[in-house]
Simulated assay, not measured.
Amino acid sequence: MKIASAAKSLIAGIAAGSAAAITAVQDNVLTTGEGVTIALAVLGAWGITYAVPNKQNNTGI
């Protein structure tokens, strides 16, 4: 596991979770379904982002 891949997926999870949370609490109430949606957004972002490899540097630098 490379640090760049883990950091990339961590940031993606935070971004997805915060976007879902902001949308969920627009009415000042967080329901169980909205909590599940936030958790699934974070987990989905972690999994998808971690699975996609970083672009390889082929410039020889």
Results as ranks from 00 to 15, higher is better:
M1G: 02
K2Q: 13
K2F: 08
K2V: 09
K2N: 06
I3E: 12
I3N: 10
S5G: 12
S5Y: 12
S5H: 14
A6Y: 15
A7M: 11
A7H: 06
A7Y: 07
K8D: 02
S9F: 02
S9G: 01
I11Q: 11
A12Y: 10
A12S: 10
A12L: 05
A12I: 07
G13D: 04
G13H: 02
G13I: 01
I14M: 01
A15N: 03
A15C: 03
G17W: 00
G17A: 04
S18E: 09
S18W: 15
S18Q: 07
A19H: 10
A19R: 00
A19M: 14
A20N: 06
A21F: 15
I22H: 11
T23V: 15
T23P: 05
A24P: 11
V25L: 11
V25P: 06
V25K: 11
V25Y: 08
Q26P: 05
D27N: 15
D27A: 02
D27S: 14
D27G: 09
N28R: 10
N28A: 11
N28G: 10
V29F: 15
V29D: 11
L30F: 12
T31A: 09
T31R: 09
T31C: 08
T31F: 08
T32H: 10
G33D: 15
G33E: 15
G33M: 08
G33W: 07
G33A: 07
E34V: 14
E34K: 07
E34C: 12
E34M: 09
G35S: 14
G35R: 12
G35W: 03
G35L: 15
V36Q: 14
V36S: 12
T37N: 13
T37S: 09
T37P: 03
I38H: 15
I38M: 14
I38P: 01
I38S: 15
A39N: 11
L40I: 08
L40A: 09
A41R: 05
A41T: 06
A41M: 06
V42D: 01
L43P: 01
G44V: 02
G44L: 07
A45Q: 08
A45L: 05
A45F: 08
W46N: 00
W46Q: 06
W46H: 02
W46F: 12
G47M: 15
I48T: 08
I48S: 03
T49G: 07
T49W: 04
T49Y: 04
T49L: 06
A51P: 01
A51Y: 02
V52M: 09
V52T: 09
V52L: 13
P53M: 02
P53D: 01
N54F: 03
N54P: 03
K55C: 00
K55A: 00
Q56D: 09
Q56N: 09
Q56W: 05
Q56M: 08
Q56F: 04
N57G: 04
N57F: 02
N57A: 01
N57V: 05
N57M: 07
N58A: 06
N58G: 00
N58Q: 07
T59G: 09
T59S: 13
T59L: 13
T59C: 07
T59P: 04
I61T: 04
I61P: 06
I61S: 11
